[in-house]
Design a protein around this nucleic acid. Structure first.
Lengths: 224, 224
DNA sequence: AATTTAATCGACAGACTTGTCAGTCGATAA
DNA sequence: TTATCGACTGACAAGTCTGTCGATTAAATT
């Protein structure tokens, strides 16, 4: 029975596996960068988490910044693709918004470190490494959905730009604030599946109720 | 005419003024810490912004951590006092929530770096320097307001704990995300008085609409 | 005017960090 | 079995950052 190289690699788990090593470095780096940001992250700390020598970071990713870029790219790939596959243009604004929020919350629940990374990037580096990245697209889509909803009269006459930001905050703050909230009884298991599920429901409910136009769109509540 | 020491200090602006020096150090430190967090902040960078020698930091604040604590304390004093003076217990839940949000947004508009500091603290240090600080109180008050509103039936049957977090996010994310949003046309003047005013209005409107129980409590809109 | 006290500075020691390098070791294939 | 190549390591050079110290000078006091 013939065994291909790939099979061997997968099953035998060889001592030296370039792909696996890069993967563990990326995983450890994501954790470190999410917590500390680019500058305060220590390559030594990343290496310590992986078990491989620190020099492997430089071997595979050139330098700390290269590793940072790689982590950022990988983290956003999922989010970007999910949101772009949304096909929101063919949906009613309310449905589009709900689907959008659901997709966003699924992504970040899957990878709860993403928001922290985004905010380090925003605050420390002013989005320097985001120039062509996903976050801009995501903002654009949410703004567009809101604009349509307002135009159609199913949403309040809100400011789409401001509201898009605020809605993001409603969904994502939870993941950032987690560290500060641990003083509360519930704070211990903030990232458990049950709590994540609950957070998604609450955030979506809050946003949908928050943007919806009051009472029926057919019979305007205003005078005239 | 007799001049007290204090008057002299204020008017003559002496070359050496301990209070003034500490103040400029605190201001510069706030900026640096807000952008970089405790670890990544550079004492040299702080000193450079002040114009006084780096050693003054150690003279007045012992070490970097001491300065950090001082900044954190000063930043929160305003917020804590404002929110505690709220007297929310004597107000209807809706009014209490609106006043609370208004107060919160006033504070952070006055000091837009506060949210960034809070989030560095949350993510990097897991709220280590917050143990007895204001943020916990603030969260408690917002939770209490929501609980009352739900009990009174004027708010939806939301989860007060989750919703308090999400509402904070709605209000504060704007100030953190600012760095990433600068790619947009509006992004340039995100912290101008007009935009801050607008943000406060939009955030409050979104939250109030988001928590309010649907239609009138007297005449239920549901079937039946 | 002389003396004391407090604020300030510049230089630097020591610790910590990044990134490099020479060389080891394991797998694959001739 | 041995040569080759890529994965991997430990030690270290170079640079950065914190925190200290003695000297210096402005203000207060006598």
């Amino acid at each position: 029975m013939v065994r291909t190289k790939a099979e061997k690699v997968k099953k035998a788990k060889p001592v030296r596996d370039a792909i696996a090593t890069q993967a563990v470095i990326l995983a450890a780096a994501e954790e470190e960068f999410a917590q500390h940001g680019l500058t305060a992250a220590r390559t030594e700390a990343i290496a310590a988490k992986t078990g491989v020598a620190k020099s492997m970071i430089y071997y595979y990713f050139k330098d700390k910044e290269g590793l940072y870029r790689a982590v950022l790219e990988r983290s956003h790939a999922d989010l970007l693709q999910t949101v772009q596959n949304l096909d929101w243009e063919h949906l009613f604004p309310e449905v589009a918004l709900e689907k959008f929020l659901q997709a966003l919350l699924d992504c970040v629940s899957r990878n709860p470190k993403l928001p922290a990374m985004m905010f380090h990037e925003a605050i420390q580096n002013h989005g320097k490494y985001y120039k062509d990245s996903s976050s801009v697209d995501i903002d654009r889509i949410s703004i567009a959905i809101l604009e349509r909803g307002v135009a159609a009269g199913v949403f309040r006459p809100l400011d789409p730009f401001q509201s898009a930001i605020n809605i993001m905050g409603t969904c994502l703050f939870y993941f950032i604030g987690a560290g500060n909230i641990q003083q509360f009884p519930q704070g211990e298991q903030l990232l458990s599946p049950a709590m994540l599920q609950r957070h998604a429901e609450e955030a979506i409910a809050l946003v949908l109720a928050g943007v919806r136009a009051p009472s029926k769109p057919i019979a305007p509540a205003e005078h005239e």
